[in-house]
């Protein structure tokens, strides 16, 4: 009887370990989790072209991870992409003339939004939109422009 009890406890632990592992796969490894967008400080930015930016891409200020992209949508009226960023509530003072640029980490690395603070006294509030943006670096566009300029000379 005693032996049977320990055996059943071990099976219970085994199943529990598997459930915990599945939970980790669901929450930590795959994208089943929806980011809680309500928490923190939300900023919007419009870009002509977002390149390879994705939901969950980092938002950095001075190279420090300050938030993540939580939603990307296409604005049909202005023909631009609108990116929603959730900023860590610890960082809530970005000047109104902050610039949002899409950069690439390394040659093949991930794309991220870089925030560069300006000099204004007034700060962006929760839900505000960043006016000054710089689109992603699209290699084809840059090369095309380069060749065009060369031909014009």
């Amino acid at each position: 009887m005693k032996q049977k009890d320990t055996m059943e406890i071990m099976v219970g632990l085994f199943v529990l370990a598997a459930v915990a592992a599945l939970f980790m796969l669901a929450m930590k490894v795959s994208n089943l989790t929806t980011l809680n967008e309500d928490e923190g400080y939300v900023l919007y930015a419009r870009f002509d072209n977002i390149g390879g930016l994705k939901v969950m891409s980092p938002v950095r200020a001075g190279g420090v991870l300050v938030g993540r992209v939580v939603a990307i949508e296409y604005d049909q009226d202005r023909f631009e992409a609108r990116v929603k960023m959730a900023i860590d509530p610890r960082y809530d003072r970005f000047p109104r003339d902050t610039t949002a640029s899409i950069f690439t980490a390394g040659l093949l690395g991930e794309q991220y939004i870089s925030l560069e603070a300006g000099g204004e006294e007034a700060y962006l509030g929760n839900g505000d939109e960043i006016r000054l943006t710089q689109s992603a670096f699209i290699l084809e566009q840059v090369l095309g422009r380069l060749f065009y300029d060369q031909a014009a000379q």
């Binding site: 669901a26 930590k28 795959s30 994208n31 089943l32 939901v55 969950m56 980092p58 993540r68 991930e110």
Partner: peptide, 18 residues
């Protein structure tokens, strides 16, 4: 560490992969 987990979550799909 952030890139390790965030890129993983970005590219691993629950129904498609797990």
């Amino acid at each position: 560490e952030g890139a390790f987990w965030s890129q993983m979550q970005d590219q691993v799909d629950w129904s498609e992969d797990v």
